[in-house]
Design a protein around this nucleic acid. Structure first.
Length: 581
RNA sequence: GGCCCCGUAGCUCAGGGGAUAGAGCGACCGCCUCCUAAGCGGUAGGUCGCAGGUUCGAAUCCUGCCGGGGCCGCCA
C-alpha cells in the first residue's frame, strides 16, 4: 500500500543480490537505507541514500555501489530511470503506470486508503483534556481536546487499539471550593444574598446548579455547617460540571471512551498500593529536599516529607508524595492513576497536558518507568497557548473580569469543523493564533476553506459528469483504464496521493496529527493547480464533453483525491463539504 | 540558579541526518466567452540566533553561549 515502502523493498532486494554476487560484503546493516521523495522534484520521484549509507561499512566508494545498484534497479519495470547523482544518491523515476495504479488503489480502498497495521494492534491509552470539573471548558482546553482526539484517530487509523480517556480531578481542594461556591448559589436560589468570597468561583454557570440544589434539598441545608453539606454538594456539583463538560466535548465532536475519577482512588488502597510498590523497589524514603537554587521562597523551611526517588528514573530532583502534614500531594494519586493504566495492560501511554504542566513531565515519566519496569513508554505532549484575536487585536482573557472565552463561545462562533482544523494548523508545542475574523474568512487565506473548497470542486465535477450521463461510481472508476493520465500536472496529483500512506505512518510514529492538516493543504493545492490548468488547456478539464471514457479516467483521479481529503479530514474530525455556494 | 519549549524569507510558519532550505501572507507582474477566479501561474526576498563538536553529509543530533516564553516543596 505504501509505494515508498514497496520501492524500498526493491532496493533491499537489489542490495541482497549484490551481496549474493559478491559485490557487497555479507552482514550489512541496511536499516538506514531510505527511499524518500527528494526535496527537489527535478531529481525525480524518489531517491535512495543506500550507496552512501553502505559505503563505509562495505569499505567501498559510494559511487561504485551506486552504479551497480542503479543498473540493477533499472531492470525493475516500475522504474523508468535510476541514475546516480550528487555524492551517491540514486534518483528514481517511476513509470506513469505506477502512479495510475495508485489512483486505482485509492479508489478501491476508499476511506481505508492509507490505513495501516503499523501499530500491530498495540493498546494505546490517550489521556487528554482532563480539565478540572469546576467550570466550563475554555479555549485552552479546546486545543488539547482537538489534539488528543485527532491523535487518537490517527493512531487508530495506523493500527493501534486506542482508548480515549479523561481523568477527572475530583479529589483535591478545588472541588471543595466548587462545593462552597455552589452552596452560595444554593443560598441565592433560596432568596438569600450569596457571599462569593475571594477564592470562590464567581461564574454564572453555578446559578443553575444552585437552583437544582434547591429543587433537591429545599431549604434544609440553609444555615447548616459545612460539615453537614460539603460532601453531598461537592459530588452534586462535580457531577453537574462533568455533565457540562461532556456537553462541551460533544459540541466539538469529542467522545471519550473512559472517564477515570481521582476521587475513586482514595479510600480504595490504590494510592497506598502504588506507593508501596515503589517502596518495594527502594524508591520511597523520608527526607528533606534542598530549596530550589537561586530563587528561594520567602517562607522556605526544611521539612521532612515522604519522597519518590524519581532521580533514579531520569528526573532532576526527587519529588514529594506526602505533604508535611501526612496527606498525599497531588502527585500521589497521579502515580496511582498511571499505575492503574499500566495494570490495565496498555502497551503505551500518552498524556496530553497544557504547557504549564511541563514541569511534571519528568516525574510522571519516572513514575511510569518505575511502575512498569520500563515496559510501558509514556509520551507526554504539551499543548501550547492559544492566543485569541478579534477585530485585529489580541483578545485579553480574564477570569476575574468574566471575559474568558469558553469552548462553547468558540464553537458557536466558528463551528466545530473550523475550530478543529485551525487548532491543528500548528505543532502542539508551538503557540497558536486563533483569529475569529480570519477563521471564518472564505478565501484561500484560510486553510480550512482552501481544503474544503478542493473537496467541493471534486464533488462538483462528479455532479457535472452525472449530468452528462457518465457513470462515476467508485467501482466503475476503479476499473477504468487510466493510461491516458500522463500530463505532468495529473501525475503530480497522483504522486501526492501516493504520499498519503507514508504521511500517515510518519505522523503516527511521531504522535503529530498536525502533519495531516499540512498534507491536506498541499494535496488541495495540487488539485487547485490542475483545475486551473483546465482554464488554459481544455484537455485537462475533468469533464471532457462527448468522451465518457476520458472523462471517467480524469474523474477517477479527482475522486481519488477526494477520497484522501475525506480520509484525512476524518482523522482531524472535520466533515468534508460537497459544495460551498 | 535549575529544568522544559521556542528562535528558519519583511510577517505567520512547515521541514524523519541528505543534494541548490520550502509554503502561505505581504510586495511586484500576469490569468476568467470555458468543469466554482472562494482559484491559478510567475518574479523578488535566507550567514536556518551565535560558536564549537559528531558525521561522507547537520536547519535537523550533541555541548556551550545569546534572545523570547513557561515551570520550579506543603495548589491541582
Amino acid at each position: 500500500m505504501n509505494l515508498f515502502a514497496d520501492i524500498r523493498s526493491a532496493v533491499i532486494e537489489a542490495l541482497d543480490a549484490m551481496v549474493a554476487a559478491g559485490a557487497l560484503p555479507a552482514g550489512l546493516d541496511m536499516t538506514a537505507v531510505a527511499v524518500e521523495p527528494p526535496r527537489d522534484a527535478a531529481h525525480g520521484d524518489m531517491a535512495t541514500n543506500a550507496a552512501m549509507v553502505l559505503a563505509k561499512p562495505a569499505a567501498l566508494a559510494p559511487r561504485a555501489i551506486a552504479e551497480d545498484l542503479a543498473a540493477r534497479l533499472a531492470a525493475d519495470p516500475r522504474l523508468t530511470h535510476a541514475e546516480v547523482a550528487g555524492p551517491g544518491f540514486i534518483n528514481l523515476r517511476l513509470a506513469p503506470s505506477v502512479w495510475q495504479a495508485v489512483v486505482q488503489t485509492a479508489l478501491r480502498a476508499g476511506a481505508d486508503f492509507g490505513r495501516s497495521t503499523l501499530g500491530q494492534g498495540q493498546r494505546v491509552n490517550v489521556e487528554f483534556v482532563s480539565a478540572n470539573p469546576t467550570g466550563p471548558m475554555h479555549v485552552g482546553h479546546t486545543r488539547g481536546a482537538v489534539f488528543g482526539d485527532a491523535l487518537a484517530a490517527l493512531l487508530a487509523f495506523s493500527g493501534h487499539d486506542v482508548t480515549r480517556e479523561y481523568y477527572i480531578n475530583d479529589g483535591g481542594a478545588q472541588v471543595d471550593v466548587l462545593a462552597r461556591s455552589a452552596y452560595e448559589r444554593y443560598r441565592e436560589a433560596n432568596g438569600l444574598e450569596p457571599e462569593i468570597r475571594e477564592g470562590l468561583y464567581p461564574g454564572d454557570y453555578l446559578i443553575p446548579v444552585g437552583e437544582a440544589l434547591k429543587a433537591k434539598y429545599g431549604a434544609s441545608l440553609l444555615d447548616q455547617p459545612e460539615s453537614v453539606w460539603l460532601e453531598d454538594i461537592r459530588s452534586f456539583a462535580t457531577e453537574a460540571m462533568m455533565a457540562m463538560i461532556r456537553d462541551d466535548l460533544a459540541l466539538l465532536g469529542v467522545k471519550m471512551d473512559v472517564f477515570s475519577s481521582e476521587k475513586a482512588l482514595y479510600g480504595t488502597g490504590q494510592i497506598e498500593a502504588a506507593i508501596e510498590t515503589l517502596r518495594g523497589m527502594g524508591l520511597i524514603y523520608d527526607g528533606v529536599l534542598e530549596p530550589p537554587k537561586g530563587k528561594t521562597p520567602e517562607d522556605w523551611e526544611p521539612r521532612e516529607q515522604t519522597l519518590f526517588r524519581s532521580t533514579a528514573h531520569g528526573d532532576d530532583v526527587d519529588r514529594p508524595v506526602k505533604k508535611s502534614d501526612g496527606s498525599w500531594t497531588y502527585f500521589a494519586p497521579d502515580i496511582a492513576y498511571h499505575y492503574n493504566k499500566v495494570q490495565r495492560g496498555f502497551d503505551a501511554l500518552i498524556d496530553v497536558f497544557g504547557a504549564d504542566h511541563g514541569g511534571y513531565v519528568k516525574r510522571m515519566k519516572a513514575a511510569v518507568s518505575a511502575l512498569s519496569g520500563g515496559r510501558v513508554p509514556l509520551d507526554i505532549k504539551l499543548i501550547q497557548l492559544v492566543k485569541l484575536w478579534k477585530n485585529g487585536a489580541p483578545f485579553k482573557m480574564s477570569k476575574r473580569a468574566g471575559t474568558f472565552v469558553t469552548l462553547r463561545d468558540v464553537v458557536e462562533q466558528a463551528g466545530a469543523d473550523v475550530t478543529r482544523f485551525v487548532m491543528l494548523t500548528r505543532k502542539n508545542d508551538a503557540a497558536l493564533d486563533f483569529d475569529f475574523d480570519k477563521v471564518l474568512d472564505q478565501s484561500k487565506d484560510n486553510p480550512v476553506f482552501y481544503v474544503q473548497y478542493a473537496h467541493a470542486r471534486i464533488s462538483s465535477v462528479l455532479r457535472k459528469a452525472v449530468e452528462a450521463g457518465v457513470a462515476v461510481d467508485d467501482a466503475t472508476l476503479a476499473g477504468q483504464d487510466l493510461t491516458g493520465l500522463t500530463h505532468p500536472a495529473e501525475l503530480q496529483l497522483a504522486r501526492k496521493i501516493a504520499e498519503w500512506p507514508r504521511l500517515v505512518e510518519i505522523a503516527a510514529k511521531s504522535n503529530e496529527p498536525h502533519r495531516v492538516a499540512f498534507y491536506l493543504y498541499e494535496l488541495a493545492s495540487d488539485l487547485h493547480s490542475l483545475w486551473n490548468r483546465g482554464n488554459d488547456d481544455s484537455t485537462l478539464r475533468f469533464v471532457q464533453e462527448g468522451d465518457a471514457t476520458t472523462t471517467q479516467a480524469k474523474i477517477a483521479l479527482a475522486r481519488a483525491t477526494g477520497v484522501v481529503i475525506s480520509a484525512g479530514l476524518a482523522i482531524l474530525g472535520v466533515t468534508p463539504v460537497e459544495e460551498m455556494r
